[in-house]
Protein backbone atom coordinates (compact mmCIF):
# COMPACT_ATOMS: atom_id res chain seq x y z
CA UNK A 1 0.00 0.00 0.00
CA UNK A 2 1.39 3.38 -0.93
CA UNK A 3 0.59 6.80 0.31
CA UNK A 4 -1.00 7.65 -3.03
CA UNK A 5 -3.77 5.11 -2.41
CA UNK A 6 -5.05 7.45 0.24
CA UNK A 7 -5.11 11.15 -0.38
CA UNK A 8 -3.95 13.04 2.70
CA UNK A 9 -7.37 13.91 4.05
CA UNK A 10 -9.53 12.85 6.95
CA UNK A 11 -9.72 9.09 6.91
CA UNK A 12 -9.20 6.00 9.01
CA UNK A 13 -6.29 4.73 6.96
CA UNK A 14 -4.28 7.90 6.91
CA UNK A 15 -1.86 7.20 9.74
CA UNK A 16 -1.13 3.65 8.68
CA UNK A 17 -0.85 4.61 5.03
CA UNK A 18 1.61 7.33 5.90
CA UNK A 19 3.82 4.70 7.45
CA UNK A 20 3.09 1.98 4.91
CA UNK A 21 2.20 -0.38 7.75
CA UNK A 22 -0.08 -3.11 6.39
CA UNK A 23 -0.74 -4.83 9.75
CA UNK A 24 -1.84 -1.57 11.33
CA UNK A 25 -4.34 -1.09 8.52
CA UNK A 26 -6.47 -3.94 9.75
CA UNK A 27 -6.22 -3.38 13.49
CA UNK A 28 -9.22 -1.90 15.32
CA UNK A 29 -9.17 1.86 15.78
CA UNK A 30 -8.69 1.27 19.46
CA UNK A 31 -8.00 -1.87 21.42
CA UNK A 32 -7.69 -1.98 25.21
CA UNK A 33 -6.74 -5.12 27.13
CA UNK A 34 -6.86 -5.40 30.90
CA UNK A 35 -6.44 -1.68 31.45
CA UNK A 36 -6.43 -0.71 35.12
CA UNK A 37 -5.64 2.49 36.90
CA UNK A 38 -5.09 3.07 40.58
CA UNK A 39 -4.26 6.68 41.46
CA UNK A 40 -1.57 7.55 43.99
CA UNK A 41 -4.36 8.34 46.47
CA UNK A 42 -5.40 4.67 46.31
CA UNK A 43 -8.51 5.43 44.26
CA UNK A 44 -9.19 2.61 41.80
CA UNK A 45 -10.44 4.43 38.71
CA UNK A 46 -10.39 1.56 36.21
CA UNK A 47 -10.32 -2.20 36.58
CA UNK A 48 -9.57 -4.63 33.79
CA UNK A 49 -11.05 -2.74 30.86
CA UNK A 50 -11.23 -4.81 27.65
CA UNK A 51 -12.62 -2.90 24.71
CA UNK A 52 -12.33 -2.89 20.94
CA UNK A 53 -13.58 0.06 18.95
CA UNK A 54 -13.94 -0.50 15.21
CA UNK A 55 -12.83 1.91 12.55
CA UNK A 56 -15.36 4.46 11.47
CA UNK A 57 -17.86 3.88 14.25
CA UNK A 58 -19.31 6.33 16.73
CA UNK A 59 -18.88 4.85 20.16
CA UNK A 60 -20.50 6.38 23.23
CA UNK A 61 -19.08 5.77 26.68
CA UNK A 62 -21.81 6.27 29.25
CA UNK A 63 -21.40 6.37 32.96
CA UNK A 64 -22.13 8.41 36.06
CA UNK A 65 -19.67 11.05 37.24
CA UNK A 66 -16.50 9.49 38.56
CA UNK A 67 -17.10 6.19 36.74
CA UNK A 68 -13.74 6.36 34.97
CA UNK A 69 -14.71 7.63 31.51
CA UNK A 70 -12.26 10.50 31.49
CA UNK A 71 -9.51 8.38 33.05
CA UNK A 72 -9.85 5.90 30.20
CA UNK A 73 -9.65 8.66 27.58
CA UNK A 74 -6.73 10.31 29.35
CA UNK A 75 -4.82 7.03 29.41
CA UNK A 76 -5.31 6.54 25.67
CA UNK A 77 -4.25 10.12 24.95
CA UNK A 78 -1.17 10.09 27.18
CA UNK A 79 -2.36 12.39 29.98
CA UNK A 80 -2.51 9.65 32.61
CA UNK A 81 -0.17 6.68 33.10
CA UNK A 82 -2.05 3.37 33.28
CA UNK A 83 -1.23 1.00 36.12
CA UNK A 84 -1.49 -2.11 33.95
CA UNK A 85 -2.78 -3.43 30.64
CA UNK A 86 -2.12 -2.45 27.05
CA UNK A 87 -3.76 -0.02 24.68
CA UNK A 88 -3.26 0.09 20.93
CA UNK A 89 -4.43 2.78 18.55
CA UNK A 90 -4.72 1.37 15.01
CA UNK A 91 -2.30 -1.34 16.10
CA UNK A 92 0.28 1.04 17.63
CA UNK A 93 1.06 0.59 21.32
CA UNK A 94 0.33 3.93 23.01
CA UNK A 95 3.52 3.76 25.11
CA UNK A 96 6.12 2.01 22.96
CA UNK A 97 4.93 3.63 19.73
CA UNK A 98 3.53 6.81 21.22
CA UNK A 99 4.43 8.96 18.24
CA UNK A 100 2.56 6.77 15.73
CA UNK A 101 -0.39 6.30 18.11
CA UNK A 102 -0.77 9.93 19.18
CA UNK A 103 -0.45 11.37 15.70
CA UNK A 104 -3.67 9.51 14.83
CA UNK A 105 -5.61 10.81 17.81
CA UNK A 106 -7.41 14.09 18.34
CA UNK A 107 -8.63 14.98 21.83
CA UNK A 108 -11.29 17.48 22.88
CA UNK A 109 -11.16 17.46 26.67
CA UNK A 110 -14.10 18.17 28.90
CA UNK A 111 -12.86 21.40 30.41
CA UNK A 112 -12.66 24.59 28.37
CA UNK A 113 -8.97 25.33 28.54
CA UNK A 114 -7.70 27.83 26.01
CA UNK A 115 -4.81 30.26 25.72
CA UNK A 116 -6.77 33.39 26.48
CA UNK A 117 -4.42 35.78 24.69
CA UNK A 118 -3.92 33.87 21.46
CA UNK A 119 -5.95 34.28 18.30
CA UNK A 120 -8.09 31.48 16.96
CA UNK A 121 -5.87 31.00 13.91
CA UNK A 122 -2.62 31.03 15.91
CA UNK A 123 -3.80 28.47 18.43
CA UNK A 124 -5.09 26.11 15.72
CA UNK A 125 -1.86 26.41 13.69
CA UNK A 126 0.09 25.73 16.89
CA UNK A 127 -1.83 22.48 17.42
CA UNK A 128 -1.05 21.30 13.91
CA UNK A 129 2.66 22.01 14.44
CA UNK A 130 2.70 20.16 17.77
CA UNK A 131 1.43 17.08 15.97
CA UNK A 132 4.36 17.23 13.60
CA UNK A 133 2.68 18.48 10.45
CA UNK A 134 3.70 21.35 8.17
CA UNK A 135 1.42 24.35 7.81
CA UNK A 136 -1.64 23.73 5.65
CA UNK A 137 -3.72 26.84 5.15
CA UNK A 138 -6.38 25.09 3.08
CA UNK A 139 -7.04 22.44 5.72
CA UNK A 140 -7.12 24.92 8.60
CA UNK A 141 -9.48 27.17 6.64
CA UNK A 142 -11.79 24.22 5.97
CA UNK A 143 -11.83 23.20 9.64
CA UNK A 144 -12.54 26.74 10.79
CA UNK A 145 -15.28 27.21 8.19
CA UNK A 146 -16.89 23.90 9.15
CA UNK A 147 -17.01 25.09 12.74
CA UNK A 148 -18.26 28.58 11.81
CA UNK A 149 -15.08 30.12 13.23
CA UNK A 150 -13.49 31.48 10.04
CA UNK A 151 -14.89 34.97 10.53
CA UNK A 152 -13.46 35.02 14.05
CA UNK A 153 -10.03 33.67 13.12
CA UNK A 154 -8.33 36.90 14.18
CA UNK A 155 -10.15 37.16 17.53
CA UNK A 156 -8.41 36.58 20.82
CA UNK A 157 -9.78 33.51 22.56
CA UNK A 158 -10.79 35.37 25.70
CA UNK A 159 -13.24 37.45 23.65
CA UNK A 160 -15.14 34.34 22.51
CA UNK A 161 -18.28 32.87 24.03
CA UNK A 162 -18.20 29.49 25.76
CA UNK A 163 -19.75 27.75 22.76
CA UNK A 164 -17.13 29.26 20.44
CA UNK A 165 -14.30 28.23 22.75
CA UNK A 166 -15.67 24.70 22.67
CA UNK A 167 -15.57 24.83 18.86
CA UNK A 168 -12.02 26.19 18.93
CA UNK A 169 -11.01 23.17 20.99
CA UNK A 170 -12.61 20.91 18.39
CA UNK A 171 -10.79 22.83 15.64
CA UNK A 172 -7.49 22.29 17.48
CA UNK A 173 -8.18 18.57 17.70
CA UNK A 174 -9.05 18.41 13.98
CA UNK A 175 -6.09 20.55 12.90
CA UNK A 176 -3.84 17.52 12.44
CA UNK A 177 -6.40 15.41 10.55
CA UNK A 178 -6.83 12.69 13.17
CA UNK A 179 -8.43 9.38 12.29
CA UNK A 180 -9.61 8.83 15.88
CA UNK A 181 -11.39 11.64 17.69
CA UNK A 182 -12.15 11.71 21.41
CA UNK A 183 -14.92 14.04 22.51
CA UNK A 184 -15.13 14.16 26.30
CA UNK A 185 -18.56 15.58 27.22
CA UNK A 186 -18.71 17.66 24.03
CA UNK A 187 -22.10 19.16 24.75
CA UNK A 188 -21.83 19.82 28.49
CA UNK A 189 -23.15 23.32 29.06
CA UNK A 190 -23.88 23.83 25.36
CA UNK A 191 -27.23 25.22 24.19
CA UNK A 192 -29.70 23.15 22.19
CA UNK A 193 -28.92 24.71 18.82
CA UNK A 194 -25.19 24.29 19.15
CA UNK A 195 -25.70 20.75 20.35
CA UNK A 196 -27.53 19.93 17.11
CA UNK A 197 -24.71 21.56 15.09
CA UNK A 198 -22.22 19.47 17.00
CA UNK A 199 -24.11 16.28 16.24
CA UNK A 200 -24.13 17.17 12.55
CA UNK A 201 -20.42 17.81 12.59
CA UNK A 202 -19.78 14.47 14.27
CA UNK A 203 -21.83 12.72 11.58
CA UNK A 204 -19.92 14.48 8.81
CA UNK A 205 -16.63 13.43 10.39
CA UNK A 206 -17.80 9.86 10.60
CA UNK A 207 -18.78 9.96 6.93
CA UNK A 208 -15.23 11.02 6.12
CA UNK A 209 -14.02 7.91 7.96
CA UNK A 210 -13.06 9.26 11.39
CA UNK A 211 -13.66 6.98 14.36
CA UNK A 212 -15.41 8.92 17.11
CA UNK A 213 -15.42 8.09 20.79
CA UNK A 214 -17.56 10.33 22.92
CA UNK A 215 -18.49 10.39 26.56
CA UNK A 216 -21.69 11.88 27.75
CA UNK A 217 -24.13 11.64 30.53
CA UNK A 218 -26.96 12.86 28.36
CA UNK A 219 -28.42 9.51 27.38
CA UNK A 220 -30.41 11.27 24.67
CA UNK A 221 -27.11 12.13 23.02
CA UNK A 222 -25.98 8.53 22.92
CA UNK A 223 -29.36 7.58 21.46
CA UNK A 224 -29.06 10.21 18.79
CA UNK A 225 -25.47 9.60 17.77
CA UNK A 226 -23.89 6.34 18.69
CA UNK A 227 -23.49 3.11 16.72
CA UNK A 228 -22.45 1.31 19.86
CA UNK A 229 -22.71 2.12 23.52
CA UNK A 230 -20.49 1.09 26.40
CA UNK A 231 -21.66 1.60 29.96
CA UNK A 232 -18.94 2.13 32.52
CA UNK A 233 -19.54 2.11 36.24
CA UNK A 234 -17.11 2.16 39.11
CA UNK A 235 -14.22 1.58 36.77
CA UNK A 236 -15.70 -1.46 35.03
CA UNK A 237 -17.28 -1.86 31.63
CA UNK A 238 -20.72 -3.19 32.48
CA UNK A 239 -22.06 -3.63 28.97
CA UNK A 240 -20.96 -2.96 25.41
CA UNK A 241 -23.68 -3.29 22.80
CA UNK A 242 -25.05 -1.98 19.54
CA UNK A 243 -27.27 0.98 20.18
CA UNK A 244 -30.14 -0.62 18.23
CA UNK A 245 -29.89 -3.61 20.59
CA UNK A 246 -30.16 -1.32 23.57
CA UNK A 247 -32.89 0.63 21.84
CA UNK A 248 -34.84 -2.57 21.50
CA UNK A 249 -34.74 -2.93 25.26
CA UNK A 250 -35.33 0.75 25.57
CA UNK A 251 -38.33 0.63 23.26
CA UNK A 252 -40.11 -1.93 25.42
CA UNK A 253 -43.43 -0.66 26.76
CA UNK A 254 -45.88 -2.17 29.17
CA UNK A 255 -49.63 -1.67 29.03
CA UNK A 256 -51.46 -2.49 32.26
CA UNK A 257 -55.20 -2.90 32.20
CA UNK A 258 -57.05 -2.75 35.54
CA UNK A 259 -60.18 -4.92 35.52
CA UNK A 260 -63.55 -4.20 37.21
CA UNK A 261 -63.86 -7.83 38.30
CA UNK A 262 -60.91 -10.12 38.97
CA UNK A 263 -60.34 -13.12 36.71
CA UNK A 264 -58.61 -16.42 37.45
CA UNK A 265 -57.23 -17.11 33.98
CA UNK A 266 -56.65 -15.33 30.68
CA UNK A 267 -59.76 -15.93 28.52
CA UNK A 268 -59.14 -18.01 25.39
CA UNK A 269 -60.05 -15.11 23.09
CA UNK A 270 -57.04 -13.20 24.41
CA UNK A 271 -54.47 -15.99 24.25
CA UNK A 272 -52.93 -14.74 21.01
CA UNK A 273 -51.89 -11.46 22.67
CA UNK A 274 -49.39 -13.01 25.08
CA UNK A 275 -50.83 -11.35 28.15
CA UNK A 276 -49.70 -11.84 31.71
CA UNK A 277 -52.12 -12.01 34.55
CA UNK A 278 -51.48 -9.50 37.32
CA UNK A 279 -51.63 -10.05 41.07
CA UNK A 280 -54.99 -11.31 42.31
CA UNK A 281 -56.29 -11.40 38.75
CA UNK A 282 -57.21 -7.72 38.99
CA UNK A 283 -55.12 -6.69 36.00
CA UNK A 284 -53.51 -7.96 32.83
CA UNK A 285 -50.15 -6.79 31.48
CA UNK A 286 -49.14 -6.55 27.89
CA UNK A 287 -45.52 -5.91 26.88
CA UNK A 288 -44.85 -4.61 23.37
CA UNK A 289 -42.28 -2.81 21.26
CA UNK A 290 -42.63 0.94 21.17
CA UNK A 291 -41.69 1.04 17.53
CA UNK A 292 -44.52 -1.35 16.63
CA UNK A 293 -47.66 0.20 15.16
CA UNK A 294 -50.66 0.68 17.39
CA UNK A 295 -52.92 -1.96 15.75
CA UNK A 296 -51.99 -4.52 18.36
CA UNK A 297 -53.24 -2.27 21.17
CA UNK A 298 -56.37 -1.52 19.24
CA UNK A 299 -57.12 -5.20 18.68
CA UNK A 300 -56.27 -6.05 22.27
CA UNK A 301 -58.77 -3.53 23.55
CA UNK A 302 -61.44 -4.86 21.17
CA UNK A 303 -60.72 -8.43 22.29
CA UNK A 304 -60.92 -7.41 25.94
CA UNK A 305 -64.43 -6.12 25.23
CA UNK A 306 -65.30 -9.27 23.26
CA UNK A 307 -64.17 -11.40 26.21
CA UNK A 308 -66.61 -9.47 28.38
CA UNK A 309 -63.91 -7.94 30.57
CA UNK A 310 -64.71 -4.44 31.80
CA UNK A 311 -61.79 -2.07 31.93
CA UNK A 312 -61.45 0.13 35.01
CA UNK A 313 -58.23 1.91 34.14
CA UNK A 314 -55.34 1.81 31.68
CA UNK A 315 -51.76 2.67 32.31
CA UNK A 316 -48.70 2.51 30.02
CA UNK A 317 -45.10 2.89 30.90
CA UNK A 318 -41.89 2.79 28.93
CA UNK A 319 -38.56 1.43 30.09
CA UNK A 320 -36.12 4.18 29.18
CA UNK A 321 -32.43 3.77 28.32
CA UNK A 322 -32.00 5.76 31.45
CA UNK A 323 -33.71 3.01 33.45
CA UNK A 324 -31.67 0.36 31.71
CA UNK A 325 -28.61 2.43 32.40
CA UNK A 326 -29.52 3.00 36.04
CA UNK A 327 -30.29 -0.67 36.57
CA UNK A 328 -26.98 -1.65 34.97
CA UNK A 329 -25.12 0.78 37.16
CA UNK A 330 -27.02 -0.38 40.25
CA UNK A 331 -26.27 -4.05 39.61
CA UNK A 332 -22.65 -3.12 40.05
CA UNK A 333 -23.10 -1.83 43.59
Amino acid sequence: MTATDHPPKLGPQRGAARRGDAAADKAPALSARGVSKTYASGLVALEGIDLDIQRGEIFALLGPNGAGKTTLINIVCGLVNKSSGTVRAAGHDIVAEYRAARSLIGLVPQELTTDAFETVLATVNYSRGLFGLPKNRAHIEKVLRDLALWDRRGSRLRSLSGGMKRRVMIAKALSHEPSILFLDEPTAGVDVELRRDMWQLVRRLRESGVTIILTTHYIEEAEEMADRVGVISKGRLVVVDEKTELMRKLGRKQLSVQLETPITAIPRVLEGHGLELGEGGRSVHYVYEAAQDSHSIDSLLRDLGAAGLRVRDIETRQSTLEEIFVSLVKEET
Binding site: C77, G78, L79, Y98, R99, A100, A101, R102, S103, I105, L107, P109, E111, T113, T114, D115, A116, S127, L130, F131, G132, K172
Partner: peptide
Amino acid sequence: PRFMGTIYELLSAPVS
Protein backbone atom coordinates in the same frame (compact mmCIF):
# COMPACT_ATOMS: atom_id res chain seq x y z
CA PRO B 1 -0.08 26.04 30.48
CA ARG B 2 -0.16 23.84 33.59
CA PHE B 3 -2.10 26.52 35.44
CA MET B 4 -4.49 27.14 32.50
CA GLY B 5 -4.89 23.44 31.73
CA THR B 6 -3.70 23.83 28.13
CA ILE B 7 -0.79 21.49 28.93
CA TYR B 8 -3.13 18.63 27.93
CA GLU B 9 -2.32 19.32 24.32
CA LEU B 10 1.45 19.03 24.75
CA LEU B 11 1.03 15.78 26.71
CA SER B 12 -1.27 14.27 24.09
CA ALA B 13 0.93 15.28 21.14
CA PRO B 14 3.58 13.07 19.52
CA VAL B 15 6.30 15.16 21.16
CA SER B 16 9.23 13.70 23.09
